[in-house]
Design a protein around this nucleic acid. Structure first.
Lengths: 353, 353
DNA sequence: GCAGTTAATGAATCGCATG
DNA sequence: CCATGCGATTCATTAACTG
């Protein structure tokens, strides 16, 4: 069921419908036994293959390339005889013919992600302030503007750039709920009270007071301890320090603290989380730590390798490798490589009636 | 000269060219003698009338209605015999037939604002996270994507709303430079170092250190005192407290601290600032305090009245009232009212050859 | 002056009337 | 009926006031 039509849309020459890979060309992903799974393949096919199965996700997180026009590299560190040796390896390619080409691909993936969501679930799309605006107009088309929940601003600190402009120190996370009519999964989190509030009211919760004439009076102090202020949509979380233990060397790695907030607020234990651009596996690691089931998708075997190592370092052995096969010739090389690497392949049953 | 064509655009049924009021229908605003001026009239006409004149602005600030679908009210306070009496008066109407109608009007004003900018000047458009994305796509069309400078996030603290979502606690300010090839007006401002940085490095400035093989070493501490970190694009500034002295009662009033940052960073003394939605006159007050010339435009005589009082409380007597006249019948009542109120009317010479 | 106390409110949100 | 509107409810926030 598509959302109500949105009169204001993005237009570009030759804009086509967003692709929905036909079911006939896919092997559908089965519900797996393990609570953390890795899917190797094109994420458009993978999202469609998952959507054709019976499972529904409470959170789909997408951290696509930001249309930077660059090829991003993975910094691999190893111990050589002269100390630590750094090797630069290509990780993912963020070069596109044009903005419209980028948006065409992104839109298809957003659409397939939506199909995979539970009615109480949500999509979180992680972008930067240059692409977020185009992405939001696309999302409004796909989900309906009513489904827009939050623009979360992730504010971080970094080494300043020499520029005649304000330093860019934030990313944007767009959150859409699948169905605005359904009560969404949401756990209220709190942040510390502002210093000025704490000074005036201490740690007690306040209560609004209205007199007989309907006018506001001074709020009263209650016995209850305040849990803090309900969490806002601007999050001050530091980027992964160059020497941090969680750092993998994979480019554009996101901090676990950021993902933990999202996962805690938007899902409950045992819910399914899908990360369509898995990368170094931050989402999977956080999901496992917080007792959520998770599936990570990535096209790059190197990314999956890093994720697999990271998970096993956490003692998570139960994850499986699986591979989305498209029957088309294009993905045959992946399939052959998978066979050579001894990866099991999962296929799945039909969508419930 | 229009910017390079942008292939990705917003489309809606019946989208028309953005209106540029024909010069023949306008009386053009003259450069005024006073450093703070008020213009009463429709801001589209007023921006066009200013653009047809000789002056160029280094900052055009626009704080339009946010497409809230509501009529906003002004809380007027006066001293009655039973204490303070509050009266609710309509201030501005933010009800629209549709999003496209809103965007059509907004786009015309953005376009006229651009025409008025100095090559080293910039536009700042203040919106909320629901409209910012549409507004940015429009601005990219009008200015060219290259002219996009910053998405500034204004983060404030407010009473919590009871909602199954992250609390919305930020506004968005989109900044575009007039000409990306020209060195923009920009004064580097600083913010306090992060606590973790101050702990490690104290108040001294750091210097990057690179060894003979081109590898980064631990940075060195310099003698120089650090001025802080170059100001970022996420600003934590409190809203105007219910009991603050600067509060006028006019709805959606912006804090002076916010405007002061913008004005200091984006203009130099004696530069011209134009506020197309002047409201209670915050921009004018700040501009005057910082020694910038300023013109405020508003359609509402009540808004101008509040601004005039606010300015005269600051000892600024030199401001003039002027009125943009359109020769069309539609604005005749305004003109008649202006005459009745004894307001002088400024008209101006032609654009320079 | 400084520190502790007081005051006022919402570019909110929700839910029940009203056509 | 299903939009729309208006009235009731919310409590963290911070400048001004008081002693």
């Amino acid at each position: 069921m598509p959302p109500a039509d949105h009169a204001v849309r993005l237009a570009w020459p030759g804009r086509a419908e967003f692709a929905r890979p036909p079911l006939a060309t896919l092997k559908v992903v089965q519900p797996g036994a393990a609570s953390t799974r890795l899917v190797w393949g094109d994420n458009l096919s993978a999202l469609a293959a998952l959507g054709a199965g019976q499972e529904r996700a409470h959170l789909v997180y997408m951290d696509p390339p930001f249309f930077t026009g660059r090829e991003h590299t993975h910094v691999e560190r190893s111990r050589g005889k002269d100390g630590i040796v750094r090797r630069l390896l290509p990780a993912f390619d963020d070069r596109w013919g044009s903005l419209q080409e980028y948006l065409q691909e992104l839109g298809s993936r957003i659409q397939s992600a939506r199909d995979l969501l539970d009615p109480a679930g949500c999509l979180v799309l992680h972008v930067d302030p240059k692409t977020s605006h185009y992405a939001k107009v696309l999302c409004d088309e796909i989900f309906g503007a009513q489904a827009f929940a939050s623009e979360i601003v992730w504010r971080y600190r970094r080494w300043p750039a020499k520029t005649k402009n304000f330093q860019r120190v934030h990313d944007v996370l767009l959150r859409y709920v699948r169905d605005p009519e359904t009560e969404p999964r949401f756990k209220q989190l709190y942040e510390p009270l502002a210093p000025s509030t704490a000074k005036t009211w201490g740690k007690s919760r306040q209560r609004a007071v209205v007199d007989a004439r309907g006018r506001r009076r001074r709020s009263s102090v209650t016995e209850e301890a305040s849990p803090g202020a309900p969490l806002g949509d601007v999050w001050d979380i530091s980027i992964i320090a160059p020497v941090a233990r969680e750092r993998t060397g994979y480019p554009t790695q996101k901090p676990e603290a950021l993902m933990a907030r999202l996962v805690e607020a938007c899902t409950a234990p045992d819910d399914l989380i899908v990360d369509a651009y898995c990368g170094s596996g931050t989402t999977l690691a956080v999901a496992a730590r917080l007792g959520r089931r998770a599936i990570g998708i990535d096209q790059s075997p190197q990314a999956l390798e890093i994720s697999r190592k990271r998970l096993s370092a956490l003692g998570i052995q139960a994850q499986e490798e699986c591979l989305v096969l498209q029957k088309r010739e294009r993905l045959r090389p992946l399939a052959r490589a998978a066979g050579a690497a001894g990866l099991p392949v999962l296929v799945a049953g039909p969508r419930p009636a």
